[in-house]
Simulated assay, not measured.
Amino acid sequence: MHTTSLLSLAATLFTTSAFAHGNVTSPPARLPGPAMRQACGAGAVSAVQSDFTGPLENIPSNGAPDCNTFLCKGQQFADNQANVQAFSAGQVVDFEVQLPIPHEGPCNVSIVDTATNTVVGDPLIEFASYADENLAVLPANNTQFSVQMPADLGGKCTVEGECVMQWFWFGTNAQQTYEDCVDFVMV
């Protein structure tokens, strides 16, 4: 093998292993699009598209007032209207998460009011210790778990775009934050 080929292979392996930490694969999570590009800039869209599992700290916001990377990675509802899920009170929602590079820390899934970026009610599920890289095998409930939709959200989440279910994970030692948002409406 040529030296150039080995260097190229090493660069590819380093690049792919330097990225990839965790993201929600089901239900459908928000994705970047033209509205995110307008709100956050091309750099933010490129950062998310190059690594959907990357931490929020890797997403540049360029100080844009309409770009809040700590709300759905800056991904906008306007780009994700086709993926709005309809849930009812008491409904069980199954989540699937990929965790190619674990980082131990707390994690939760909560309902978030998108206008204020505040949690509505109690978390739907909480992990005091999640994705512990010191374990030989992660617990199955780190990558597949269910949440139950609350019976009362105080009249919130009845309009598309008003609320998201937010998967939020903070890798304590890595000092990195991961999140994904699922758009939904209560019916």
Score class of each variant (00 low, 15 high):
1 M>F: 11
1 M>Y: 11
3 T>F: 13
4 T>M: 12
6 L>I: 08
6 L>K: 08
7 L>H: 01
7 L>D: 06
8 S>H: 05
8 S>G: 05
9 L>N: 06
10 A>S: 10
11 A>P: 01
12 T>P: 03
13 L>E: 09
15 T>D: 13
15 T>A: 14
16 T>Y: 07
16 T>D: 01
19 F>P: 05
19 F>L: 12
19 F>W: 04
20 A>C: 09
20 A>R: 10
22 G>I: 03
25 T>S: 12
26 S>I: 03
26 S>D: 13
27 P>M: 03
29 A>K: 01
29 A>T: 07
31 L>R: 08
33 G>E: 09
33 G>F: 00
35 A>Q: 00
35 A>H: 00
36 M>F: 03
37 R>H: 07
38 Q>N: 14
40 C>A: 03
41 G>C: 00
42 A>P: 08
42 A>R: 14
46 S>I: 02
48 V>R: 05
49 Q>M: 06
50 S>F: 06
51 D>V: 04
51 D>F: 02
52 F>N: 14
53 T>C: 03
55 P>T: 07
55 P>Q: 03
55 P>S: 14
56 L>G: 09
56 L>N: 13
58 N>K: 10
59 I>D: 15
60 P>Y: 00
64 A>M: 10
64 A>E: 12
65 P>W: 08
65 P>I: 02
66 D>A: 15
71 L>T: 02
73 K>A: 12
73 K>D: 14
75 Q>S: 01
75 Q>F: 04
76 Q>A: 01
76 Q>Y: 00
76 Q>M: 11
76 Q>E: 09
79 D>T: 04
81 Q>E: 02
83 N>F: 09
83 N>Q: 11
83 N>H: 05
84 V>Y: 02
85 Q>W: 06
89 A>S: 15
89 A>D: 12
90 G>C: 05
93 V>Q: 12
96 E>K: 15
98 Q>K: 13
99 L>Q: 03
99 L>T: 07
100 P>Y: 06
102 P>T: 08
102 P>G: 10
106 P>C: 10
107 C>A: 15
108 N>W: 07
109 V>D: 02
111 I>Y: 06
114 T>Q: 07
114 T>G: 07
117 N>H: 08
118 T>E: 14
119 V>Y: 10
121 G>F: 02
121 G>W: 02
121 G>P: 11
121 G>Q: 01
121 G>L: 02
124 L>H: 00
124 L>V: 00
124 L>T: 04
126 E>L: 06
126 E>G: 11
127 F>K: 10
128 A>G: 13
129 S>D: 10
133 E>Q: 15
135 L>G: 13
136 A>P: 15
139 P>E: 02
141 N>P: 07
141 N>D: 14
141 N>L: 05
142 N>G: 09
144 Q>D: 13
145 F>W: 08
147 V>G: 00
148 Q>E: 14
148 Q>T: 15
148 Q>C: 00
150 P>K: 15
151 A>L: 14
151 A>N: 15
153 L>V: 14
156 K>N: 07
157 C>A: 10
158 T>V: 11
160 E>A: 15
161 G>M: 08
161 G>P: 12
162 E>Q: 14
165 M>C: 08
166 Q>R: 15
166 Q>L: 12
169 W>S: 01
170 F>A: 10
171 G>P: 09
171 G>W: 01
172 T>W: 05
174 A>F: 01
174 A>W: 03
174 A>G: 04
175 Q>E: 09
177 T>E: 08
177 T>M: 00
180 D>C: 02
183 D>F: 03
183 D>Y: 10
184 F>K: 05
186 M>T: 13
187 V>S: 13
187 V>I: 08
